[in-house]
Design a protein around this nucleic acid. Sequence first.
DNA 1: GCCGTTTTCGGCCCGACTGTTTTCAGTCG
Length: 579
Amino acid sequence: MAGIFHQIAACYRYLGARQRFRVIAYDNAARTLNGLKNDISTYAADVKTLDKLHGVGESIAGKIMEYLRTGKIAAFEQLKERVPPGLLPLMDINGIGPATVKTLHRKLGISNREEMIAAIESGRLERLKGFGPRKIGNMRKGLRLAEELHGRMLLWDALRAGDEMQRNVLSIAGVKKAELAGSLRRRKETIGDLDIVAAADKKDWKKIIGQFTSGGGVERVLAAGGTRASVLLKGSNTQVDLRIVGDREYGSALMYYTGSREHTISLRTWAKGHGWKLNEYGVFDAASGEWLAGRTEEEIYRLFGMDFIAPELREDRGEIEIALKGSLPGLVEVADIRGDMHVHSTWSDGTADIVEIAEYLQKDRPQYDYLVITDHSPGQRIGRGLTPEEFRRQFREIDTINARLGRPLLKKGVEVDILEDGTLDLPDHLLQQFDWVVASVHSHFTRDNTDRLIKACEHPLVCCIGHPGGRLIGRRQPYPVDWEKLIDRAAKSGTALEINAQPDRLDIPDTTAMAAAAGGVMLVIGTDAHALNQFDFLSMGVSVARRAWCTKENVLNTREWTEVEKFQSVKKDRAPRQT
DNA sequence: GCCGTTTTCGGCCCGACTGTTTTCAGTCG
């Protein structure tokens, strides 16, 4: 539905300036629908509940109902008669907007991507008024980049690229402060480009822009003005936007560049309604134009009478209203985590043996009270799953190492396969001997797996479902799951759901984790580490939890081990006795 | 087309950069 309304907005954008407020309205509706937790049909029981959604009024609610009833929207079908469908995606390309598309359609009959490329290459555009060589060059680049830039970076990779960028900018003479902003600061799971905000005296700006755009890693300068610049990095094709501001604007600029766009629009609209004007230069009295705040983000939120809104929450999911009430949740932090719940050793497909893991923990993770070794069960052939006999030998090794450490740091766990019929890959009498059992799906990735996951939840010895959605970002779609049903059964059975912190999994994702926490499900953050350096992935999992509005109460491994044991015993007591 | 501390009409975030033209429209974030 959101996609359809995005297209309707594009149609009106094409049809001209007179429709520009319709464009905003349909964009707003699309954004609202995109953020819904539940299927649209659950809101469409009657027009009234639909109408309550922000940005959905009488007309759009009617169109949603019409679509659910008939599979079509008559008004959209009519719009498609007036706007050739091949033109809509063209407007999403950098450097090409509705006016350009319209001119080319009218004058040259261009109605899709291929025709546009052909027209550019044949030189037919050059005769048109308003189409100089640079504009045509930019269109050509935009078309080419649309292909290449389709791939976004994983958060983990973006963070490392961003850290380096931040160091580079900080090393330029005259730069006083610099911070990464944008979706990276909000910790979205994939990142399109890097944004960086820097503070400097105005006299140095030009020099800084010059040095930034001529830096060694820069492939091409996309734009460079007196206050900001965009460049493409060599090799990765990553776009980096730098914005330089004075000390007084640093907070407001950081806020503006952090976004999200939707959060910014909502906040500006709210401010305007209360007699302020908010832009990247600060907060101003709307009447007198007097500057009131902007040095730091904290200063701005304070002036507005709001809690500080953590970047991860700035997605226009109601955070502004709740910040006004002063009741934003205290989000879970990396420092709250007491142990890792999902780790592989050389016994299965990890690269570090248990001794190395223990030594590494002692040295680099002294704050951990426990770490669960969760090697694969026998069915996992690619993952070199262990036989029951091997698990027993592994138990003895863990006991020996713990004895040497003088504390029960290492826990005996397993990542047991959920087989196709929802049963587990190890017998109950063995499962009983583990301190912690993660059950995961490693096969049949295309079918609806709700039944398998629910059956695993209802097994009394399963503590947690591992990477419940099964996706690999950019490589494998998540399999279909009825999340409402699964969340309900996980909550009732007392089974935790994992936030798997592998950068290409981040599974379950933020919106699902948010629904799970709201549904009373306990979450567990596990790194699924297969090597020592992967323990650092923990912060990825924490980011997902923070974006899901989770406090440390929502995350089991912020607690000490006796609490983890209590969590398990509640489930065992609740479950019907196994025969 | 939506919405209400501007409340059923009248406004909808707001500023920077680019290219082409020479005062501004188009596009982007």
